[in-house]
Design a protein around this nucleic acid. Structure first.
Lengths: 227, 227
DNA sequence: CTTGACATCGCACAAATGTTCGTGTACTAT
DNA sequence: ATAGTACACGAACATTTGTGCGATGTCAAG
């Protein structure tokens, strides 16, 4: 048995099953295969699946919905799988979500080390145009920036930097309070104003040497739950 | 959330799903779960599955046979899967940014095909817990949802679906206007209200059959420029 | 030209499977 | 008691989904 034995359609079916299963965590139905491979008739899909089964490339369970799976072992032997994995090497990077902000937890300075992050997000390079190794993320707690459309629970991505321009949103460490918060930055003379985007909160004003900027917010991400 | 929160039955269900999936390479049906966990009624299984879903321990696809899978990432976090093969968390997916919304452009229905997207974003699976191939993204144009903290220029990630619950933010196609907009959904009788989150704009009210939902907003992403 | 294997199509059908609904029981809080 | 909540049951129902069958087109062998 050889892959050249397989028809174009059968190869596409294999490929589709692989991708579908990877994304859904369950196998596709005959109709889903048909739709995505360009076969209008379920019987034709079934026919081709039988062929694939004969070649032991897939395993089928009769009369079971979605009762099929790839024979990964066999496929690997035949050198088919590697071919699939080597895709898309577009530069992407992973950003760790380090913890929460605005609640008053210190955050590690530059987190190249795993800090038991609660997760991470991954972006393509083009989106932010910033060096990936200087980025980190925090989950926002509280409503102090609600007028800047940053909500409780949002994730902010920050670019680790010690300075920032007026008007930029930053995460800053306030020495006296032993606290890190998310605020707009404004410098006036020798004083630093950390101003919230919520009229209910007061700006924090401190001498410049008592405030340390951890990073500048470069992105905000929110995940909505179904209603 | 804690495992002690779970009833005996729910824990057994989890365990069964895990074992079944491992041996069969596809997830069990409601009835299969019931049989093996000792529940005679499908609705009871369904009930418990819903509970598990609320706790984000599993992911379910509505109206899809065997449409469930364990949230391995979450389970690992909770220390339930001590011996896991390592990188379940490695799964990442790319979401195409298809175009703009609220400006009045029709958007392609389900973009499995490359549509020359202006870019894409990539997320870890655990973040959204939705099938990657049903997700797409749009860039928001205009301020109609500003009170929902969705700004002009933001990127919204949508889950392609034809229906949605009241109160969810959706992208909807309005037949008469030949227009697609981003609004909150509210159904009242036979009418569909598409209500903006901005007092300056009026809700759009149409007969249900004149409105087609393209997808539900599951995430919002904003990229900030330096000041 | 005929024959027959091969691949395809569309459709109808039945089995598999998720969803919904009315009901019941136990336990808790008021 | 009374109301409320969480959990459970079973049956009816609506979709989803696999299977079977007749018909069509292609192509190489006889």
């Amino acid at each position: 048995m050889n892959f050249s034995t397989l028809s174009e359609r059968q190869q596409r079916i294999l490929r589709f099953i692989y991708e579908f299963t990877n994304t859904h965590h369950y196998p596709p139905t005959i109709r889903e295969i048909g739709d995505n491979v360009g076969i209008s008739s379920t019987s034709v899909v079934n026919y081709n699946l039988s062929k694939l089964e004969e070649n032991e490339l897939i395993v089928r369970e009769r009369e079971v919905s979605r009762g099929l799976s790839l024979n990964l072992e066999r496929l690997t032997e035949l050198g088919w799988l590697p071919e699939l994995n080597g895709n898309s090497a577009d530069r992407r990077f992973r950003i760790p979500i380090l913890g929460k902000i605005a609640a008053g937890k210190p955050i590690p300075v530059i987190p190249s080390e795993p800090y038991d992050p609660e997760g991470w997000i991954e972006l393509t390079e083009g989106m932010l145009n910033l060096p990936a190794d200087r980025l980190f993320a925090l989950r926002v707690q509280g409503n102090s920036m609600i007028d800047a459309s940053v909500l409780d629970g949002d994730i902010v991505i920050l670019h680790a930097q010690e300075t920032a321009n007026n008007g930029e949103m930053v995460a800053a460490w306030i020495e006296d309070d032993e606290d890190t918060t998310l605020k707009y930055l404004r410098r006036e003379g020798n004083m630093v104003h950390l101003v919230p985007a919520n009229p209910n909160y007061q700006p924090i004003v401190r001498p410049a040497d008592k405030v340390r900027i951890n990073g500048r917010v470069v992105s905000v991400i929110r995940v909505l739950k179904p209603a």
